[in-house]
């Protein structure tokens, strides 16, 4: 079984996100980089699929050279191959990203055969566009379901589960298939020291991305207004009890 998982390098900020003076980027001077929690689950799912069914998992990202870190992180968890679509900008718009990824997938598949399953995160943690996966599937002419919280591989098809408002939707979809994975599908493992060291040795393949810019352009980033909290002392000791009850009722905790 051949599984591909697409991840995006995004900053891992604290509660307050600092924006650079020119308003064009998040100030990442002392921030770590990661992938979105959905993508961490997608990588874990790819590794588990291969553990269960054999074959090989590949991780792919379009991003700056530093995105090598996210590829190796996936590799440290058991993904065998890594592909970087290097770009010099911080980010590409989703349309362009999707076109480039679809192009790269075609190239990879021409060389080594089709991917049975291509996994995306449901949405990226930074810009949250909910669309790269859909666009890629569309470009490749493959079925896609998003919001997936369970995958079972059958004979030539997958059964994929996702939560709906009032229950669970179950899809049977023929492979090759594209799935947008949601956090909660599994509990991603941490890399081991050996995994980290192995990942160092993984050769990262490069595919030059080519795609025309899409229609969307980032104008500027704005700092969200700081939420100020106001502390009100409700009272001291037993006298405060009534006021506490009022607040709890107001919040709907007590009815």
């Amino acid at each position: 079984m051949r599984v591909l998982v697409c991840v995006k390098r995004v900053p891992a900020p604290g509660a307050k996100i600092n924006i650079t003076a020119d308003g064009q980027a998040v100030d990442t001077a002392y921030l770590a980089f990661t992938t979105s929690p959905h993508e961490e689950c997608a990588v874990e799912e790819a590794v588990q699929l291969v553990e269960r069914h054999g074959g090989e998992a590949t991780v792919l990202t379009l991003g700056p050279a530093e995105a090598d870190e996210q590829l190796r992180y996936a590799a440290s968890l058991g993904v065998a191959k890594a592909v970087l679509l290097p770009i010099t900008e911080a980010d590409w718009d989703p349309q362009r990203t999707a076109a480039a990824i679809a192009g790269a997938i075609r190239e990879l598949e021409a060389a080594e055969g089709a991917f049975d399953i291509i996994l995306f995160g449901n949405e990226s943690a930074d810009s949250g566009g909910f669309q790269v996966g859909v666009r890629v599937a569309r470009a490749l002419g493959r079925p896609i379901v998003n919001g997936i919280k369970g995958i079972e591989v059958g004979d030539g098809s997958v059964r994929a589960r996702r939560e709906a408002e009032a229950g669970v939707e179950v899809y049977t979809i023929p492979m090759p298939v594209v799935l947008g994975v949601k956090e909660g599908i599994n509990l991603p493992r941490y890399p081991t020291m050996k995994g980290r060291l192995n990942a160092k040795k993984v050769a990262v393949a490069q595919v030059t991305p080519s795609a025309e810019p899409g229609g969307q352009q980032m104008v500027t980033l704005l700092q969200a207004a700081e939420k100020s909290s106001n502390t009100v002392i409700l009272g001291k000791g037993p006298e405060a009890a009534a006021a506490v009850v009022d607040v709890l009722e107001e919040l709907g905790v007590l009815k």
């Binding site: 604290g14 307050k16 996100i17 002392y30 921030l31 770590a32 980290r196 060291l197």
Partner: peptide
């Protein structure tokens, strides 16, 4: 040093730079 608010963990727990740590992992193993 980042402020408490801007830190993913705390201001004095910055992300590990693995390139620096890798030789140590081999020695530890």
């Amino acid at each position: 040093i980042p402020s408490n608010q801007a830190s993913a963990l705390t201001p004095t727990e910055l992300p590990l730079t693995y390139d620096d740590f890798e030789p140590q992992m081999e020695q530890a193993i």
